[in-house]
Design a protein around this nucleic acid. Structure first.
Length: 296
DNA sequence: ATGTCGCCTCATAGGCGA
């Protein structure tokens, strides 16, 4: 049970700490510095598929201490245990939706969480733990673990596409109301060719099917912004997942499947969005790494 | 087809899901 604490990894995080605030040119020109505007709070939201919270707890704690995000979305808890009291000690309250063995999602937050929903509308019989809709500081924060859908010739792929249709219905409702909304998590979607190392090796995968990708594009066509891609257009080789086998990480043979989608009002506040590959170098890592978005 | 993880059990090996 003894697990190594990856203290040496803290150094590489230093460059990611960025607590500076922004001052507009008009404010500078006017010579009037409104302190409340200068101190305007930035919010840092992260998402991480941890592939078992029990196995990865030390990694998550190490990462939280180093990065101190305001909000962390977790996916693939893979069990009914959730160590809420441990996160509380670090200053995070939490809400977790768990099931035995599979799936499981949680939201950690320094600010109070108001849980709105723990299931995705549209299928009363769907009992998978894949969804949390919450309100945190006036922002709707949604954590999803979208079904993998493999193999393509199975009920699992049918379920995936239906889940995406239900998600789109919900996202259309959200974008129509006034609340700024961020949807983050493991989408299990490779949006474009540049989001994988080699398209030909994913061509038969559920994450890369035309039906999957067209549904993801439909979300963007409805007005949502892919936070990472909007700040890093045409930038390939940026992945959030690498297979465990065949040294995929060492060769950067990965895929970008963990995403943040923003409503336009939040996209206007988008400052940065980065993938933190460091935890993939930890001992016994998750196959995913955190993606971090910062909003003004 | 294969590789490697993590979970679970009619459990110490094998099946499932990813």
């Amino acid at each position: 049970m003894e697990r190594r604490r990856d203290a040496q990894c803290y150094r590489s995080y230093e460059g990611l700490h960025d607590n500076c605030t922004t001052t507009s040119h008009s404010q500078l020109r006017s010579g009037i510095l409104d302190l409340s505007a200068v101190r305007r709070q930035q919010i840092k939201i992260a998402s991480w598929n941890v592939n078992s919270i029990r196995t990865r707890l030390e990694h998550v704690l190490t990462w939280l201490r180093a990065q101190s995000p305001d909000v962390l979305l977790l996916q693939e808890l893979k069990g009914t245990i959730f160590p809420a009291e441990v996160f509380k000690e670090l200053g995070y309250e939490s809400v977790a939706v768990t099931q035995k063995s599979y799936n499981g999602v949680a939201i950690l937050s320094r600010q109070p969480i108001e849980t709105i929903n723990t299931t995705l509308a549209g299928d009363e019989k769907d009992s998978h733990a894949r969804f949390i809709e919450a309100k945190i500081g006036g922002v709707r924060v949604v954590n999803i673990y979208l079904p993998n859908g493999n193999p393509v010739a199975s009920e699992k792929f049918v379920y995936k596409l239906a889940w995406m249709d239900r998600l789109q219905d919900q996202m259309i409702r959200w974008i129509k109301d006034e609340m700024p909304t961020v949807i983050g998590g493991d989408f299990n979607v490779i949006p474009e060719d540049i989001d994988c190392h080699k398209p030909s090796s994913w061509i038969r995968d559920a994450l890369f099917q035309p039906e999957t990708r067209s549904r993801y594009r439909a979300l963007l066509e409805r007005g949502y912004i892919d936070a990472f891609r909007s700040l890093h257009p045409d930038e390939g080789g940026q992945f959030t997942f690498w297979d465990y086998f065949r040294s995929a990480f060492e060769h950067n043979r990965g895929i970008r499947i963990d995403h943040f989608l923003l409503t336009p009002s939040l996209a206007a506040r988008l400052i940065r969005c980065e993938i933190d590959k460091t935890p993939r170098t930890f001992e016994r890592p998750s196959d995913h790494v955190p993606i971090v978005v910062e909003l003004s």
